[in-house]
Design a protein around this nucleic acid. Sequence first.
DNA 1: GAGCGTTATGCAAATATGGCATATCGAATA
DNA 2: TATTCGATATGCCATATTTGCATAACGCTC
Lengths: 116, 116
Amino acid sequence: MIGVRSKIWFAIRGSPLIGQGRRDLLVYIDHFGSISAASREMGISYRKAWSSIQAMEECLGKKLIVRRRGGRDGGTASLTDVAKELIAKYDRVAGGLSELIDHRFEEVVKEQGKIH
Amino acid sequence: MIGVRSKIWFAIRGSPLIGQGRRDLLVYIDHFGSISAASREMGISYRKAWSSIQAMEECLGKKLIVRRRGGRDGGTASLTDVAKELIAKYDRVAGGLSELIDHRFEEVVKEQGKIH
DNA sequence: GAGCGTTATGCAAATATGGCATATCGAATA
DNA sequence: TATTCGATATGCCATATTTGCATAACGCTC
C-alpha cells in the first residue's frame, strides 16, 4: 500500500543538471545515435528531449551532444566525453541507492503501528 | 560548484504522502501549537501549509492534525498519534541519507575529469 | 455580543510542463 | 547543381501545477 520513492540529481547553483530521466536520455542517445530515435524509444516527445539537453548544456556550460544535421539519415547525434563522464559519475553516486532505501523502508514499515 | 541533491518521500498509489518539507511542517506544528505559527516560522504561506496537510490527510485517509477553532488565541493545532508515528518512520528511513549521498558524491567528484 | 487570532477556502495570478506545427539544415543521390 | 529525406531546432499555445491574496467562518474570552 504505502511505498517509498526517491530522486537524486546533480545541480549547479541550485539549478538541476542531471537526474535519472536525463541520464537515461543520454544513454539512449548514445545507443540509438540520434535524439529523435532516443525520444521515440523512451516514449517522450522530441521537444521534451531537446529541451532537456538544452537545459543540461546551458547549466553545465559544456557541450554534451554532438549534433549533425543533414545526410542520408537526416542527421545524427552522439555523446561528448563530458557527457560520458557525467553519466559515469551520476551512476556511481546514485547506483544502488533506491535498493538501499527500499530495504530501510521495509525494515521500518513491517513494525507494529497504525500505518501500513 | 557542482553539487548533489536528493529527495525521499512516502507515497500511496503514486500520490505523494510525506517528504522532508511536510515532515518539517508537522514538527513545527507540534512545536508551536498552531498551523499559522508553524507556517510563519517556516517562511511559507498559511495556504501552502494548509494545502499540504489536506493532501497528506486525504492521501493517508487518517487525521494527522487536531484542529481547534476559536478561543482566546484564535485556535490551536496539534498532532495525532498517527502523525507522530509517520514522522518517526520517515526519519528512520530518510535519516542520514543525505550525508551518505554527500559522502559518495565527494568521493566521485574529487577524481580527475572534465567536470568539477 | 464584541473582539481577537486562528482555521478554512475560493479564486486569480504566476509559473512550469508538454505537445503541435513548422522552419531549418546539409549529406547523399541523381 | 537541384532534389530528397529524416533529423535538428524553435516558436507558440494549451494544460497542469504552484503560489499568494482576500475573505469567510469559527468559538473562546472578556
